[in-house]
Amino acid sequence: MTARNTMNPSELTADESRIDSEEAGLGLSPTMAALKRARSHYGLKIGFGILLVMAVFALFAPWLAPHDPYLQNLPMRMLPPVWVEGGSWEYLLGTDHLGRDYLSRIIYGARISMTIGIGAATIGMIIGVTLGLIAGYFGGWLDQAVNFLVTCQLAVPSLLLIMALVFVIGQSITVVIFVIGATHWVFYLVVTRSATLRLRELDFVAAAQAMGCSKFQIAVKEVLPNLVNQIMVIFTLEVAVAILNEATLSFLGLGIPSPIPSWGLMIAEGKQAMFFQPWLVILPGISLFILVIAINLLGDGVRDVTVTNRRN
């Protein structure tokens, strides 16, 4: 608990009793206890706060962006941001090589990044958790087959595979989401599999078996709910990985097609003028950095407050 400067005695006792009951696990459901812990976790609060702001901008981009991100205005091209000499309040972060408002493009870019991050992490989750449940719960040759699949997936240079797939299938947001998702499921699988192996030996699974539940019912209704916390943590971290992957792909010219405002693509376009107008490269990069670090802080925080046996 953090020390407070002004604290009256009644608050103090209330605080202490809370710690006691929390540590003894009395009177609080696991969710409530996790929420209490979350309230004093700085990384989680900072990450969540930043993400909330960025999500609002992404969701309400059409109302919050000052200009149309696709509108070209060649006489106004390559304007610097407002704090650099020659900048204007009309275009807060300047304009790009086609005279498009950079702030609006960055706001719309948050949309692209978040859509792709969440989409790809969801697809990876569906693949990884399904395979993990199968491998962990059924075991035997299925487990070995899945294990072999993981070894193969890990041996492939993933970025090259993603690039080749996107090139072969065609560049679009949907393709990028599916390809990144289809190549990022190993982490889910490993965790789901080992947790399932542990859970299936427990009494409540035996009880479900005695009640005549099918293997499928047990896997989905008994085992899966117990994995939610761990899967949530991996999901957050995989969102960050997917966002970085998309940016890299778009930077190399095999991701989101122009003129959609993807941060990676904006960096690639700004690279041409990097030596004269460095902010064209710096600004989208900083946006990426802030978004990814916020997601990672949130993910680490969620792990700290929910997966209690993994603390320290």
Partner: peptide
């Protein structure tokens, strides 16, 4: 934590 969040190609630039 920060090194994990920096896009590799951007660090290069």
């Amino acid at each position: 934590v920060s090194a994990q969040a920096i896009p590799n190609f951007w660090l290069g630039l």
